[in-house]
Every structure is written in structure tokens, then in C-alpha cells.
């Protein structure tokens, strides 16, 4: 497919590959038959229907219902927020959509492709940013990014250029990209993680608490960047967070998740109106959260204190 040339006097494009193909999200570099047809505009970017996931830890314990009959629908180009306390099942839901966990019940479709049946096609369409910026820490950002690029079938030369452009937009200078990731701050690493995801031009971008644990400034920068991505690109985004302001600012629909169940779903304003009209409360997301989960996000309980699996 032809790539639209970049004019040099412009600001560097945000997600270079996205910009060059503004409206069609057909991944052009991979010869998977199902992708020969352009994505159908009428199809939702993500459809989750009646999904349930249980975990059993240890032999005698009874299974934990991490996701309980969850359904949601993300229209193309939208930002869907999943708001929930720690342990409410946000990451599990993201992992189910990412194919990192199998579904116990229900089905998930990405642009009409069933995630189990069309696994490779779906994998090419999505990418994910998790709360921990997961990199080969001794390798440089560029080495990490080029590894990802090769896995997604991108041309390394082009990917390198694109990576420079995306990183530069995120405030990471060219001279910084060849030193080991471990020498970077958390905020910087998280930006590199976002760059890695954008580099593959995902049609569906899964952001799992992308700003948790960042200092206030990095947090604002990352939020601004997410906003920019959604405004300038044809990417559909799922964003999990336990930050109410973030959800309010970035999302056009929000599901409130509590103990693996969706307890409320609407636009941010719709949710606020709901607590005002039905419960006579001040229309804030905080009150929405309190009303539907019976807890406050400020007094977030860390119920999951089991050891990390990385020893």
C-alpha cells in the first residue's frame, strides 16, 4: 500500500503510521487473508458479550470470580473507560480481550473477528499498554521497539523512523533512545510503552491503568497524549483507571466495575445525571462510584496482597 509522504516542515506526526493512513485501518504489511477486506465501519471496535472468568489459586480454595457476565460495546473511534477499584477485574478484562487469558464463558469480537477463531487477525489489530512498563531493561528503547516492530511484521527501517517521530512527540529526544531502558524514569518508560503500542498502528488500543503510579506531570502528559491520539487518529481505545478525573476527561463511555460485575454504564455526564436524578446527589463521578460500588476510590482497599509471580 502506498504511504503518504511526510512533509518535512511540519511538526513530527504523532503516530506516524497512523497519520499516514488516516481512515483505513487495514494493516498493510501482513498477508493474512482475513485482513484483505477493510474494516467494516458498521462493526463495533470491540464487542464483549456475557464474558466470565474464574481463577483457582491453590488446591482447596474455591475459585475467584474475577469477571462475572460482563458485556460491553465500544464503537469505532470511541474511548471506553473501565472504572474500578483494585481487584475489581479491570486487568483481567483487558487480558481476556488481549487473548492472554481464555474465556470461561461468553465471546469477544474485535472489528467483527472472534478473538478465539481469528486469533492472528485480532492480534494484528490490537495492542496494549499495561501499568508496568514491561521491557528488556538492559536493551534500549529503540531495541525494544524494533523487536516489537519485527514481531508485527513492520519494515525495520520505516519502524525506526516512526519510532523516532512518536518518541519525539512524547518528549523523548533522539539521543536518549539508545541507552538502556533501566536508566529511564517510570514516566519515561511508560511513554516508551505507549510508543511501542502505537508503533504497530493498532485499531484497538488497550490501556490498562496507563497513568497509575506516574508523577502528576507525567500523568498529565500521558493523558494529553491519549487525548491527542483519539482526536487525530482512527483508533478505538479501552482505558482502565481508578482515577475519576481521568475517566471524566478522556472517556466517552464508562463502565463501573465492582467485584467483576458491571454495576453502571453510561457516558460520564449520563452517569452523573443518574446519581443526581435517582439518588438526589451532587452530579460527580465520585458519587457515581460511591453509589454503585458502595465504596470510595480514595479509600481503595488493596485486597490482593498475594505475592508477585516474578519471585
Amino acid at each position: 500500500m502506498a504511504r503518504i509522504g511526510r512533509t518535512t516542515d511540519e511538526d513530527p506526526p504523532v503516530t506516524a503510521t497512523l497519520l499516514r493512513k488516516p481512515k483505513t485501518f487495514v494493516p498493510d504489511r501482513l498477508a493474512v487473508p482475513a485482513e484483505a477486506q477493510p474494516l467494516d465501519a458498521a462493526l463495533p471496535a470491540l464487542l464483549v458479550e456475557g464474558v466470565t472468568k474464574r481463577f483457582t489459586v491453590g488446591r482447596k480454595k474455591k475459585p475467584v470470580l474475577a469477571i462475572d457476565n460482563v458485556s460491553l460495546r465500544l464503537e469505532r473511534g470511541g474511548v471506553f473507560g473501565i472504572l474500578g477499584a483494585n481487584g475489581s477485574g479491570k486487568s483481567t478484562l483487558i487480558r481476556l480481550v488481549s487473548g492472554l487469558l481464555t474465556l470461561d464463558e461468553g465471546r469477544v469480537e474485535v472489528f467483527g473477528h472472534d478473538i478465539a477463531r481469528d486469533e492472528m487477525t485480532v492480534k494484528r489489530l490490537i495492542n496494549r499498554v499495561s501499568v508496568d512498563a514491561a521491557f528488556f531493561k538492559k536493551l534500549s528503547p529503540m531495541e525494544n521497539l524494533l523487536f516489537a516492530a519485527r514481531l508485527y511484521g513492520l519494515d525495520p527501517g520505516t519502524a525506526r523512523e516512526d519510532a523516532y517521530a512518536i518518541l519525539e512527540r512524547l518528549g523523548i529526544a533522539k539521543k536518549r533512545v539508545d541507552r538502556p531502558v533501566e536508566q529511564m524514569s517510570r514516566g519515561m518508560q511508560q511513554k516508551v510503552a505507549i510508543a511501542r503500542a502505537l508503533l504497530t498502528s493498532p485499531a484497538l488500543l488497550l490501556l490498562d491503568e496507563p497513568t497509575t503510579g506516574l508523577d502528576p506531570r507525567s500523568k498529565l502528559e500521558v493523558q494529553a497524549f491519549i487525548e491527542e491520539v483519539r482526536l487525530t487518529h482512527d483508533a478505538s481505545i479501552v482505558l482502565t483507571t481508578h482515577d475519576l478525573d481521568e475517566a471524566d476527561r478522556l472517556c466517552d463511555r464508562i463502565s463501573v466495575l465492582n467485584d467483576g460485575r458491571v454495576v453502571a454504564e453510561d457516558s460520564p455526564n449520563g452517569l452523573k445525571r443518574l446519581v443526581a436524578e435517582r439518588h438526589g446527589q451532587e452530579p460527580t463521578l465520585h458519587n457515581v462510584f460511591m453509589t454503585y460500588t458502595g465504596r470510595s476510590l480514595d479509600e481503595d482497599v488493596e485486597e490482593d496482597a498475594e505475592p508477585d509471580d516474578n519471585d
Binding site: 501482513l30 488481549s98 492472528m120 492480534k123 495492542n127 521491557f135 514481531l151 516474578n310
Partner: peptide, 16 residues
């Protein structure tokens, strides 16, 4: 990859 923490990313990539 488990040690580095990258396992999930590699498993998500569209490679057999």
C-alpha cells in the same frame, strides 16, 4: 521473558 516482564507482550504479538 518472565524475568524481564515482557512475556505477555511477546505472547500477544501476531506470530506463531
Amino acid at each position: 521473558e518472565r524475568w524481564e516482564g515482557t512475556l505477555e507482550y511477546t505472547m500477544m504479538a501476531p506470530v506463531h
